[in-house]
Simulated scan of single mutants.
Amino acid sequence: MRQITAEDVYLSFIGLPVNERARFFAMLAEPVAQTQNFSHEQVFGHLAGARFTAHEAAEYLGVSIATFRRYVAHGKLRAKEEVGRSQLFATEELKLFKRALQEVRKPRAVSAA
């Protein structure tokens, strides 16, 4: 019987849809999360130079693809490069935009008048 190798696992992993990959990391992190705190850089540092497709970028931002396309159409986000008809978006720009979205979505304190 053939033993599964790390390469087999990796090749299976990269074939998973993005949401399943995220679920996998969440499952791995559960037992470790109580004992260790990882920085954003430690967890996502390998993505620093990565490019996201429109669908991956929309998922990362937590918006629908239609909303994401509106952001692009209105110049709020720009593709870093184009490959054929596909647009690819830079991780750093998406990260900054996500922070801006979170600031807008924060409930604002109402002052007593």
Rank of each mutant, 00 (worst) to 15 (best):
H40M: 08
L11T: 05
G84K: 02
A26F: 12
P31S: 00
E82N: 10
T53Q: 07
V43L: 15
A57M: 09
A90C: 06
L77P: 00
T67M: 02
R21H: 03
R78K: 14
Y60N: 03
A73D: 11
V43C: 14
A29H: 15
G49C: 03
L28S: 13
A48T: 10
R70N: 13
Y71L: 01
R51I: 00
L11R: 06
Y71N: 02
F13D: 02
N37T: 14
V43G: 07
K80L: 13
M27L: 14
L88N: 03
T67K: 12
E41C: 03
A54G: 05
A48H: 12
G49Q: 06
E82V: 11
A33S: 11
A50Q: 04
E20Y: 10
E30F: 02
R21P: 00
G15Y: 02
A79S: 12
T67R: 15
L47V: 00
F68V: 00
H74W: 11
H40K: 07
L16I: 02
S64F: 03
M27Y: 14
V32I: 08
A90P: 04
Q42R: 05
E30V: 12
A73C: 04
E56W: 06
A58C: 07
H46R: 08
V32F: 10
V72R: 01
Q36P: 07
A50I: 02
F68Q: 04
S12H: 15
H40G: 12
L11Y: 13
A90H: 10
R51E: 08
G49Y: 03
A90F: 07
H40W: 11
N37K: 09
R70S: 09
F38D: 03
G45F: 03
R21G: 13
T91L: 00
G15P: 06
S64Q: 09
F13M: 08
F89T: 00
S86G: 04
A57L: 09
N19H: 13
N19E: 15
T53F: 06
E20L: 10
T91F: 11
S39Q: 04
A22G: 05
T91C: 08
F24Y: 09
H40E: 11
T91K: 12
L11A: 05
F44D: 04
A54V: 05
H55Q: 14
E82K: 12
Q42V: 00
N37V: 09
E20A: 11
K80E: 14
H55R: 13
F38K: 02
H74Y: 07
Q87I: 01
F25S: 02
E81T: 09
P31T: 00
Q42D: 04
F89R: 07
E41M: 09
Q87H: 14
N19D: 12
F25Y: 14
L47E: 08
T67Y: 08
Q42A: 01
A90V: 02
K76Y: 05
A54C: 05
P31N: 07
E81F: 10
L28I: 08
F38S: 01
F52R: 01
E81C: 06
A73T: 04
G15D: 06
